Simulated assay, not measured.
Amino acid sequence: MPDGPNESDGLAATRSERIELALELLAHLEHDELELPAVIDRIETVTTDPTTTRDILDEAEKRGIIDRDGATIRTRRGGTFVRFESQVVTREGEFDCRRCGASISTGHFVRFEAGELGPFGSSCIRKVTGRE
Rank of each mutant, 00 (worst) to 15 (best):
T48I: 15
F95K: 05
P37C: 12
A38F: 11
L23H: 00
G101Q: 08
H108S: 07
L117S: 01
E17H: 11
T80M: 08
E33V: 15
E113W: 02
T48G: 05
E59C: 09
R99A: 07
R98Y: 03
R42G: 01
M1V: 08
G107E: 03
D49T: 07
V88N: 08
T52E: 11
R18M: 06
V82P: 01
F120H: 00
V89E: 13
D55S: 11
V82S: 02
D69H: 10
G64N: 02
E20L: 08
R42M: 04
R111K: 10
A22I: 02
R83V: 11
F95M: 04
R18S: 05
I19P: 00
H28K: 15
T45P: 04
A71K: 13
R15S: 12
L57Y: 02
T52N: 09
R99Y: 12
V82F: 03
A38T: 14
D67A: 09
T106Y: 10
E61K: 03
T14N: 07
T53Q: 12
P5S: 12
A71C: 06
L57P: 00
K62Q: 10
I66Y: 01
R74G: 04
D69M: 07
E59H: 06
I125V: 15
A13N: 09
T106H: 04
F109V: 08
R131L: 14
S8M: 09
V88L: 14
T51I: 15
E116R: 07
I56R: 01
I104M: 03
F81Y: 09
R99T: 03
D58S: 13
L29M: 08
V89G: 11
L26N: 00
V39E: 00
D3S: 08
E7Q: 12
G78K: 04
L57D: 02
S8Q: 10
I125C: 03
T106P: 09
E132M: 12
E24K: 01
R91K: 15
A38Y: 12
I19K: 00
T51G: 13
E132H: 14
T47F: 04
D58A: 08
R42D: 03
T45C: 14
R98C: 04
G93M: 08
A102G: 10
I65G: 01
I65Q: 02
T90F: 06
I66R: 00
D96R: 14
D49I: 04
M1W: 12
I40C: 11
F81P: 02
R18C: 04
I66A: 01
A13D: 11
T47I: 09
F120E: 02
G10C: 11
G115I: 03
R63N: 06
V39C: 04
T80V: 14
G107N: 03
C100D: 05
F81Q: 15
A27K: 04
G101L: 05
T129S: 05
I125W: 01
R131V: 09
R77V: 02
R76K: 15
L26G: 01
Q87I: 06
F112M: 07
P119W: 00
F95R: 02
G78C: 08
M1R: 08
D55I: 10
D67K: 14
T48N: 07
G64R: 00
E132R: 15
G70I: 05
L29D: 02
R18I: 10
S122Q: 12
L29V: 05
A13S: 10
E35V: 14
F81C: 12
D67R: 07
A13C: 09
E85G: 12
A13R: 15
R77S: 06
S16Y: 13
A27V: 03
A71D: 12
H31A: 11
E7W: 06
